[in-house]
């Protein structure tokens, strides 16, 4: 069963053609890792899925929610986008936690404001999620009092608070000091094992080997090559993929 379906997604910034007709279907419980050089359009692709960037053309479907570029009236369209976002967890490179709220308040915010859940119920939910990401003892800390790795785990808990069908991660560990990367990847691996559908933009080869069902290599706005981790990493067919893997290894 498809959870995400992208049909012919096109996005330009002025005359910079960033996505040139991307087609991509992601099955339930599938973990897709997206790699590619800087500027190839990976972030833009994720951001087009939840309309953080509006595609110029194409159709995005997540679960039952379908958003078509330029389609239907503006009001309906916005409502559909909100529904789609409520079902899609988004994890940012820079965490983007709410600095004026504690960890537990960050996680409660979505359920309380959007789902109108009672504060007590939301608090219990948030405490459970923070425990799940290993931060039971940090509930009442403000983001500024947490390490980068801890902040990113709170951000994952916040995304999970809406009980999404799918989680999108845009380079979730690239803003972290090397020793903090592991704790975040472990949380993501656990989620993958539980059957969460995930699309992860990352250059963590180890993570891809361990949990990815499929690796996608993007370059200059197109999907150049995709397949199992073994196929893409060990037997790449395209010259650009080989070159990129070489660059990552040498980095």
């Amino acid at each position: 069963m498809k959870v995400i379906n992208l049909e012919n997604i096109t996005k330009s910034f002025a005359d910079n053609h960033v996505l040139k007709g991307i087609n991509l279907a992601v099955d339930k419980s599938e973990v897709v890792v997206v790699m590619g050089p800087s500027g190839s359009g990976k972030s833009t692709l994720l951001r087009c899925i939840t309309s953080l960037e509006a595609p110029n053309d194409g159709i995005v479907t997540v679960g039952d929610y379908k958003v078509e570029a330029g389609g239907e009236n503006e009001r309906e369209r916005k409502a559909t986008i909100r529904k789609l976002r409520q079902n899609t967890g988004f994890v940012f490179q820079q965490f983007n936690l709410f600095p004026h709220k504690t960890a537990v308040e960050n996680v409660m915010e979505g359920p309380v404001v959007i789902k109108k859940m009672s504060r007590e119920k939301a608090r219990r939910l948030a405490e459970n999620l923070l425990e799940k990401v290993g931060l039971a003892d940090k509930c009442h800390h403000y983001p500024a009092q947490l390490s980068g790795g801890q902040q990113q785990r709170v951000a994952i808990a916040r995304a999970l608070s809406m009980e999404p069908m799918v989680m999108l991660y845009d380079e979730p560990t690239s803003a972290l000091d090397p020793e903090l990367v592991r704790e975040v990847l472990l949380v993501m691996k656990d989620l993958a094992k539980e059957g969460m559908t995930m699309v992860v933009v990352t250059h963590e080869m180890g993570f891809a080997r361990d949990v990815a069902d499929r690796v996608i290599f993007m370059d200059r706005g197109v999907i150049v090559e995709q397949g199992t981790t073994d196929a893409v990493f060990n037997h790449p067919k395209e010259e650009r993929t080989k070159q990129f893997l070489q660059d990552v290894k040498n980095a």
Binding site: R82, F98, S161
Partner: peptide
């Protein structure tokens, strides 16, 4: 930071919320 609006809207909030 514009990431704050993006994080809030990514949860599914309206612009007003």
């Amino acid at each position: 930071d514009k990431g704050q609006l993006e994080a809030a809207e990514s949860l599914g909030m309206t612009y007003g919320q």
